[in-house]
């Protein structure tokens, strides 16, 4: 139940969406782009989101592309996580997506929504960060493309009126050896205590984390320690954990020291699975 009124728009093209946004913004409607709507609706109910207009992206053809055969492969931002899982164009992303929320919710949650949501886990971002995917963004200044790693600092740095159109993942990244694990406080449904996505490219491990901090991250410092093969694995892991950004989450899902304990273990699993000697 949304306890306020908003108008719903469903543009058919990128240009139309941007034009609508600009017009609604000028009218003071503080419009929101609308993917699956799951977060907009549930946070509205709690008074954490408000808007007078939503712009649904699901009718924009570019946002619905799923091209698994091209290089790079192209994933529309308005694809649902279930669509991504079922088509499985990028196995590491599939694994990440499959752990978000639950199956029925994933039928609605979109890739763009998960990347851009306020709920700070944004778990699909991990796979894209380690794969160094490209991100196509549209906005009042036109369409641009960048490496996600340049734009994602805690969250995607979009300017007002911009939205994610597509994600592009280069073919070779899709085939790299990888690791993914999500550990929760208890059981198999729920937010993460720690989620790790990692892959190995040219003998270098890339690793990204959610649940450790109040934002997902991939860190050069952390990776430098992980890849420092002069030292034994346990030391590499400890150094990596010590280099995590701050603050470490300390909340109802778990305490900070426990999260670090879990993260260290998952890193050990990751290194082992990626063929490092432990």
């Amino acid at each position: 139940m949304v306890p306020f009124e908003f108008a719903y728009y469903r543009p058919q093209s990128i240009a139309e969406a941007v034009a609508m946004f600009i017009e609604l913004e000028q009218k003071g409607k503080r419009p929101l782009y609308y993917g699956g709507g799951t977060e907009i609706i549930t946070l509205s109910r709690l008074g954490l989101v408000s808007t007078a207009a939503v712009i649904d992206m699901k009718a924009i053809p570019e946002c619905r592309v799923l091209d698994a055969d091209s290089d790079p492969l192209v994933l529309g931002a308005a694809l649902s996580l279930t669509e991504l899982v079922e088509a499985n164009p990028f196995p590491l992303l599939t694994k990440a997506a499959k752990e978000v929320a639950d199956r029925t919710a994933r039928n609605q949650i979109t890739l763009g929504g998960n990347l851009c949501g306020q709920i700070f886990y944004r778990e699909t971002a991990l796979a894209l960060l380690v794969a160094e995917a490209d991100i196509v963004i549209a906005g009042p200044n036109g369409v641009r493309q960048s490496r996600i790693n340049d734009l994602f600092h805690q969250h995607l740095q979009l300017s007002r009126g911009e939205f994610v159109v597509q994600i592009k993942v280069r073919r070779f990244a899709v085939e790299l050896p990888h690791f993914h694990h999500k550990r929760r406080k208890q059981g198999e449904i729920g937010y993460p205590l720690v989620t790790i996505a990692a892959l190995k490219k040219d003998e270098t491990i890339h690793a990204a984390f959610s649940g450790v901090c109040p934002f997902p991250f991939r860190s050069a410092k952390v990776e430098a320690h992980l890849n420092d093969r002069r030292r034994p694995a346990t030391e590499r892991i400890q150094a990596a954990v010590n280099a995590f950004p701050r603050p470490i989450l300390h909340d109802i899902e778990g305490s900070a020291d426990y999260r670090l304990f879990v993260a260290a273990q998952l890193l050990e699993d990751a290194l082992r699975e990626l063929g490092e000697t432990i």
């Binding site: 719903y8 709507g37 549930t42 699901k58 029925t104």
Partner: peptide, 11 residues
């Protein structure tokens, strides 16, 4: 299957 509490009727 869709959770109808999280989808707008208009959609």
């Amino acid at each position: 299957p869709i959770k109808s509490c999280m989808m707008l009727a208009i959609e």
